[in-house]
Amino acid sequence: MAQKTIAGVNLEVTEDGYLENPSLWTEEIAKEIAKEEGIELTEKHFEVIKFIRENAEAGLTIRKVGKSGIVDIKGFYDLFPGGPLKISTKIAGIKKPASCV
């Protein structure tokens, strides 16, 4: 487990940079993680992030975010290019979604 200072807060993060404790997350932390991913957060981003944080427990899929009414799947990709679920969960400060197979 690694320590990392994000937005002036000393946090525990996983090997690939996910917060260990989602309750310590703030919008400032989100902005800084997003910057590292090359993303400037807009209001739309935060709407998606809110949905993601609220649904973290129930399990998330790209399809589910696409049905959230906030963005469709294409829009989700546009906001978080590359791997929208991987990147958005990191910014949202929740655990990396485990694809259970």
Partner: peptide
């Protein structure tokens, strides 16, 4: 595959 590799784990 939508997974990051051949399998999940």
């Amino acid at each position: 595959t939508p997974l990051p590799g051949a399998f999940t784990k």
